[in-house]
């Protein structure tokens, strides 16, 4: 393959990027894998600039310094807020930052495949390309669940469900690049769970002081659906003193709040295809995205779909990098003649 040759020369660095609402990651042909939380922050004024000491901050560091920053989560709700230049600028900064993290050697050309939430791709194709093209010599944009599917060799007869932060994306693979009918997006995902959990906790413990970030951390630490024997207690300050609170029920209710929509969308997707194909898909359902880490979710989905015949649901091993690894595989497999004109 010609890629193998060019790669040996080291003149091209292939990168796969997963641009997510909450996390973005990069996998590259020089074996680096890095991720950041998708927050970009610019100092509010020169005083803040002096405080933070750099013109732009990312991820956890940006969050930590949010008092001093204009903070932007560029793909909130899965879509670039176009018309709001800041979002596009933020996408640029993240891409630039990720590519820097991949440490291309001087003079190396960057060939990038970028996976973005399916809805972003629908609405902001050009904007995404614009934002990335400054930092890559050649690039292709694909939908993220598709990148996951490609990376896992699920080219045919499969359904990928990517439960992210802003959106849950469904993507059916049947041997071609998925069309719009093969994909579906719902807004019941990680952020939605956070909102639910936040309101349940505010209701139950009106005196406790917590914020959305803490709530998300509780969720990521304890998320589950169905039954679980362990207790879930966390420290939340009340009047400035940490107090133990039982949040097990609220965690469960919040995580389960996405289940009805999830099951409905899954069955609806499958029902779009003819019965023979349906059976194949049902035995090849893969969960991806941070939400796939919710304990009991895979089993729950599998059980609910079993009503209509046998079914198998599995989860990707590494949700954080499944998207960028898939995008990198696409980049490496792409014939070189396809890169040149782009």
């Amino acid at each position: 393959m010609s890629q193998a040759e060019t790669q040996k020369e080291g003149s091209i660095l292939f990168v796969g990027i997963d641009l997510g609402t909450s996390r973005s990651s990069i996998s590259s042909s020089n074996n680096t894998r890095e991720w950041v939380e998708s927050y970009v922050g610019w100092p509010k004024d020169f005083i803040s600039l002096q405080v933070v000491g750099k013109p732009v901050l990312f991820g956890a560091e940006a969050l930590k310094n949010r008092l001093s920053l204009d903070l932007c989560r560029p793909l909130e709700r899965g879509i670039i807020k176009e018309g709001i230049e800041k979002s596009e600028e933020a996408v640029k900064e993240i891409i630039k930052h990720l590519i820097e993290l991949a440490k291309p050697s001087g003079g190396q050309k960057i060939y990038a495949v970028v996976g973005v939430p399916a809805d972003t791709l629908k609405v902001n194709k050009l904007a995404i390309r614009r934002a990335v093209s400054e930092f890559a010599h050649s690039l292709m944009v694909v939908s993220e669940p598709f990148a996951v599917a490609y990376g896992m060799n699920l080219l045919n007869n499969s359904l990928v469900i990517d439960i992210g932060a802003g959106t849950t994306d469904f993507c059916i693979m049947h041997g071609t690049i998925p069309s719009e009918e093969d994909q579906k997006t719902i807004l019941n995902a990680g952020d939605y769970i956070d909102d639910q959990l936040y309101s349940y906790l505010s209701e139950k413990y009106p005196n406790a002081r917590f914020n959305k970030n803490m709530v998300r951390q509780f969720k990521e630490q304890f998320s589950f659906v169905g039954d679980m024997p362990d207790e879930i207690k966390v420290e939340i300050p009340v009047d400035g003193k940490p107090v133990l609170h039982d949040i097990k029920n609220e965690i469960r209710r919040a995580c389960e709040s996405i289940l009805p929509a999830l099951v409905e969308a899954t069955t609806e997707m499958i029902a779009r295809f003819d019965p023979e194909f349906q059976i194949k898909i049902k035995n090849n359902i893969v969960l991806a995205g941070g939400g796939s880490l919710i304990r009991g979710l895979r089993e729950y989905l599998q059980d609910s779909l079993k009503e209509y015949g046998p079914c198998s649901v599995t989860s990707v091993n590494d949700p954080l990098f499944a998207g960028s690894d898939g995008a990198l595989k696409l980049a490496l497999d792409m014939p070189s003649k396809y890169w040149e004109p782009l």
Partner: peptide, 13 residues
Amino acid sequence: TILRGVYEDNLRI
């Protein structure tokens, strides 16, 4: 087929 699809899709973009 899929790789060509990706390419053509991006050309369209």
